[in-house]
Design a binder for these strands. Structure first.
Lengths: 196, 196
DNA sequence: TATCTTTGTAAGTGATTACTTACATACAAT
DNA sequence: ATTGTATGTAAGTAATCACTTACAAAGATA
């Protein structure tokens, strides 16, 4: 087969991982199937990643950089808190619906594996989102826009339920979804909680 | 080894499944490990269940009967809606914290497997909860206690986020949790949404 | 007591797993 | 042109998987 650089091959492999998970389920994610999907030999995969686990870890790092990075920019922007919250929520919903393979991977890996490093990465992804939401809410309270007596930690937890249960829904129903309405409807509910 | 009836053995096997998942992760759930945990031979397992998959299915049926059954009684009771909602939420939180093995199993199985019957069972568990919550809310609205303009479907979805994200938290953090505060704090947030 | 069904086990089965080894060749640097 | 390194493959490896087979014995029924 044609030769390509490791970085290109790594991307191909990671894409194939997500592809298989979404179309066939995590059970079918073997190095053998992975090689078939890309059209290369099984041995070649181990030229570009030392172990199968390292492929998963690399994907989770991508999520940290791309997804959480994007959310961090939104949360720290100078927009009014209400607009930040709206952008934040919609960005999350869009990411989840656009990357179904990734979300299934995160879910399953969390309960499937007992690897400490992996679990800690997943915990970070979850907690980072919670902290960024808390920041937006606290900013809104500081500006006098929202009720200062609300328990911010609990609202953030309730907020996190939105993407997480959306996730479950996506996994169970297999994909079809109408993001626009969902995003703004959920925002309105959260805003009612935040209202003075 | 001492002989026991199939029904007793089936319970032992199912308990061992949940035990392994919680202590060692789903990856270690092999028929070989299962037999070791119980202290019986691997072949004996297949005397009491035709396949490994059937053990999982039987556990999910237990969840339907025990957990959803309990929630159904609460939702259909003649208590005031606000009390039903409180009992409903606390029963869910307690079940999740008491049965960590089960919740991990449901999560993982949903994304791991592509078995249609299994996925449909999991979907039913999720949807039944949503429907029961919707019923309580609609009853409250009919009694004039809550805002009739709220989108019930979306509140139910937001509500479902509570147990689901609690679940994630339990999986990632490994167990320790203070249920009492959580239960009532979350209820207050939902009530603020429902308020006229 | 004799027989039949249920429950148990040890030792297999072939399939699949993640990963390795030995070797070939493309391509960049000298 | 020569050499060294990165990328490729086919054919392994031992371990593990879910499950089966052949046979033994417990316990109920006759």
């Amino acid at each position: 087969m044609a030769r390509k650089n490791t970085d290109i091959r790594q991307e191909e492999i990671k894409q194939a991982v997500l592809d298989i998970i979404f179309t066939d389920g995590l059970k079918k994610l073997s190095t053998s199937n992975l090689a078939k999907r890309i059209g290369m030999s099984e041995g070649s995969i181990f030229r570009h990643f030392p172990t199968k686990q390292d492929i998963i870890i690399s994907i989770i790092e991508d999520v940290q950089n791309d997804f959480i990075g994007q959310l961090r920019i939104i949360a720290n922007s100078s927009l009014p808190p209400i607009e930040r919250l709206q952008k934040f929520l919609c960005a999350t919903v869009n990411y989840l619906t656009d990357n179904k393979g990734i979300t299934m991977l995160l879910f399953s890996e969390a309960s499937h594996n007992n690897d400490a490093a992996l679990k800690s990465s997943l915990q970070q992804i979850f907690n980072n989102q919670k902290q960024l939401v808390s920041k937006i809410i606290l900013d809104g309270i500081a500006l006098g826009e929202w009720d200062e007596s609300i328990p911010v930690e609990n609202v953030a937890m309730l907020y996190m339920g939105i993407p997480v249960s959306l996730n479950i829904d996506l996994i169970l129903r297999g994909g079809e979804f109408h993001a626009d309405n969902f995003c703004s409807k959920m925002l309105q509910l959260i805003l009612k909680i935040l209202k003075k």
